[in-house]
Simulated scan of single mutants.
Amino acid sequence: MTSSELETPPLDTARRLAEDGDLEGAAAILTELAADPDGPDRAQAAVGLAVVLEERGDVEGARAAARTALATGHPEFAAQAACHLAQGFEREGRAEQARGAWQAVLGVGTPAYVPLAHLALARLAAEADDYDEAESALRSAAEVAGDDDELRVHAAQQLADLLLERGEPGAAAEVLLEALGSAPPDSVARLRVQLGIAHLELACAEFAQAVDDGGDAATSGLAIELLARTLPLRGRLDDADRVWAYGLDHEDEALAGEVRLRHDRDT
């Protein structure tokens, strides 16, 4: 062994071995470093060991190594270890364990990883149909994004989609308008499309309310036409047919006549 090799830090040697495909050799070095409770490289070595062991198919060993790194409380490598655990649990469909690991990321509190944890917790909450928790997590992700405008926009887009699913287009529009104020140029178009969708949903709600309010025949006929012609833009063809049918068959002959004229313009 040359003098330069003797001077190479063990972590670098382990990394080189792993890159060259010698996972066993890398694991041996990393295991020794991770086992030293007073070693300066313990946290980083434990994370590296978790990755190497997972590549070797030793899932439980990888998790044990990740937990070692997490226990160090290291601001960088403990957070990486918690992410490693969380992602592994998610791949296996173990939502509760994944949620606990993402919460551990929040507990470490490293700014670079906190928004990612909030986004992941929002995803898990949405999958469990806990939309209040998902909304809270997405709002937290946007708040702690710091100078990462792309991440903030990503959180805003997901939050807007969630609010639209919940039938809250007004709240979705507010989120998107705020996001547009600091959006990177390549995100503006996506945000504007979403904002347009929110406005379409708002328009549908207003048209439907105008029909329910029971105005004069001309106004109600226009509201029915606008609602029936807007709904297909949101993929709601069956709903549009029902709106037309409601107007065409209405007991008020004046209203039914108005709707018939508007409907027959396409024929």
Rank of each mutant, 00 (worst) to 15 (best):
R229M: 07
C204S: 08
R229V: 11
D216R: 14
G196E: 07
A218H: 10
S220Q: 13
G214S: 14
L226A: 02
Q209D: 10
C204G: 05
L191I: 05
A223I: 13
E225M: 01
L226C: 12
L202E: 07
G221R: 03
S220T: 11
S220V: 10
A217Q: 12
E206W: 07
T219F: 03
R190S: 02
R190F: 06
D216V: 08
R229N: 10
R190I: 01
R192P: 04
A228H: 10
T219V: 12
C204H: 13
D213Q: 09
G196L: 05
A203V: 10
L226N: 07
F207S: 06
E206V: 11
L195N: 00
L227P: 02
A228K: 09
A223E: 12
G214E: 03
G214C: 07
A205H: 10
I197K: 02
A189V: 01
L200S: 06
A208C: 04
V211S: 12
L222G: 13
A210P: 06
A208Y: 04
R190N: 00
A218N: 05
Q194G: 10
A228C: 13
A218P: 13
F207V: 13
L200Q: 04
V193A: 00
A198D: 02
L200R: 07
R192Q: 00
A210M: 03
V193T: 00
R229G: 08
E201P: 06
E201W: 03
E225T: 05
A218M: 11
G196D: 05
Q209T: 14
L222I: 13
I224E: 14
A217D: 11
L200N: 07
Q194L: 02
G215V: 11
E201M: 01
L226H: 01
A205I: 05
G196N: 05
G221S: 14
Q194M: 01
A203H: 09
R192W: 01
A208Q: 03
L200C: 01
L195K: 03
D212Q: 15
F207P: 09
G214D: 12
A208L: 15
Q194A: 01
L222D: 15
R229F: 01
E225Y: 03
G196T: 03
A203N: 08
V211I: 15
L195M: 04
A228Y: 08
L191W: 02
A208S: 06
R190Y: 02
D216P: 07
L191V: 06
T219K: 14
S220G: 08
L226K: 07
Q194W: 01
L226E: 04
F207R: 10
I197W: 04
L200Y: 03
A189I: 00
I224H: 03
L222A: 15
I224W: 06
E206H: 11
G196I: 08
L226S: 02
